[in-house]
Computed example of a mutant assay.
Amino acid sequence: MQKLSRAFTVLALSLFFVLVFVVAGFGEQNLSTDEVEIREYQGEKLGSVSDFRENSIRGVQKVDPATYRLVVDGLVAKPLSFSLEELRSFPRKKKLVTLFCVEGWQVKALWEGIPLSALFEKVGVLPEANTVIFYAVDGYTTSLPLDYILERDIIIADKINGITLPPAQGFPFQLVAESKWGYKWIRWLERIELSDNANYRGYWESKGYSNSGDLNRPMFEQ
């Protein structure tokens, strides 16, 4: 009888800890269990989130959606920070774009998120700004010309192939830097700075990678 009681106790504790981990995981990543990744869009086959290779500088970051803030500051009339709830009210856009990594792999995906122009409209970009510097939770940085961002209507994505961006792909936001090498596609975005420093060098750019990041140019500075 004591053995049976002990077995039930162990089983109950095991179920309790499984439930705790499951609930904690959902709260941390803010992912929905009923989301299904699409593999085709407008007649084109898509890659999968499982096709991406992990190559971040400090491993996959886990961002708490309850405390997350996206800061937009620098050369702006009104610096602001936004919660995820506030960001849900912004206009949204979908883009079919392929990410090309300097390691030799690529993934075509359907990205959905917020046009940076909508954020810029809120803060009021000052005339002297010519560069946008992006900062990630893990300390990674990169930059892009302001003109390129506006002309291409570049977005920060919180969805990929119809599902919430997983932590490995940069939850809550990844920059969709179309026509640029993958090191410009910053993940776990937490700050966007408007700047007049056109020569700013980000993490990999400061180590010799091309500052433009253009796919049709050498990936290293000449």
Rank of each mutant, 00 (worst) to 15 (best):
V18A: 10
V18W: 09
V18S: 07
V20D: 09
A24E: 14
N30S: 09
S32R: 14
T33Q: 12
D34M: 14
E35F: 05
E35V: 04
V36I: 15
V36R: 15
E37C: 12
R39H: 14
R39W: 06
E40D: 04
Y41K: 04
L46G: 02
L46Y: 03
G47H: 00
S48T: 11
V49S: 05
V49T: 14
S50K: 15
F52N: 05
R53A: 14
R53Q: 15
N55P: 07
N55L: 14
S56N: 11
G59P: 02
G59K: 07
V60D: 05
V60F: 09
K62A: 12
P65I: 01
Y68S: 03
L70T: 08
V71M: 08
V72C: 01
K78G: 02
P79H: 10
L80G: 06
F82V: 07
S83V: 06
E85I: 10
R88I: 04
S89V: 07
P91E: 00
R92W: 05
K94W: 01
L96W: 10
L96F: 10
V97H: 06
V102N: 07
G104T: 08
K108I: 03
I114Y: 01
L116W: 05
F120I: 01
F120H: 04
K122L: 03
K122P: 00
V125D: 01
V125A: 03
L126H: 07
N130F: 11
N130K: 15
T131L: 00
T131R: 12
Y135N: 10
Y135L: 03
Y135W: 10
